[in-house]
Amino acid sequence: MQLAVNIAVLAAIYALVSCGYVLIYRTSRVLNLAHGELMMLGAYGLFTTASLFAGYPLLAIATSALLALIVGVLVYVLLMRHMAGEAVLAAVLTTIALGILLRGTIILFWTAQAQHPIRALGLTNQSIAIGDAKISAVGLTLIVVTACVYAGLYAFLRYTAWGIRMRAAGQNPLLAAQRGIGLHRIYALAWGLATFTAGLAGMLVACDSALDQTMATIGLKAFPAALVGGLDSLLGALLGSLIVSASEVLIIYYVDPLLSEVVPFIVLLAMLVVRPWGLLGTREELDRV
């Protein structure tokens, strides 16, 4: 039972992070390897707003979530816009470089010490008993938030004009542009939303445990989840997160805790050998250097 709860919490983390990979990839065909760092930035943003608005935890969370959205749009407008139409390698490397830049800047601003934003917010992380298993309050919030985010994204992509435009831009940018869809705006929105969800994930993870440089690793480990499910399918990301987190938790428990760093990547390799485009992804003509 405890294992199932652990799997659910980890799957929620991975799902919340990996939907950002999917959003950006399915809209602009760019793999964002700075996602972990953006997630970390969101968490540090919460840490700062928490001390700014001491006593108003909700205000602090809302502000930092909004900040994450703005940062995402800025990343696109200032940086990734220049990489539109470039080779895949160049775009991916730009995001890697952005990740390094962010990581350095974060240490410069907030030092490399572990921080605890939940204390700065003035909240406590109680553990709640479900049957014979325990779940932390933040862990439960994480699951709820992930469910809300996925439901929200589904509704957004399905029913709103902007969501439909986003799907159109992902399916065929040329046709979409000729129908009068501003691609730059759509891409910027995708980056904003992706960073927003990454920021949410970062904040919640930081509240559940602590906040330090290792958070970027979680971002990187969520990437296999996105790919296993199919890089352009949100439902796939959810499914992939479950598969990756289940195998990770079970292997840590039954085999060897040291393996936790590699399990997602082993799952990823297995998937790449069998179905490179993922469980629910569309099969595409894969691009060259």
Binding site: M83, A97, L98
Partner: peptide
């Protein structure tokens, strides 16, 4: 924090090369 400055500057230089001097 020298290593952090290094990180940040390295990322920045890499971005500058990728964007302006591919």
């Amino acid at each position: 924090l020298i290593f952090a400055v290094n990180y940040a500057a390295f990322g920045l230089v890499m971005i500058l090369f990728l964007v302006f001097e591919p």
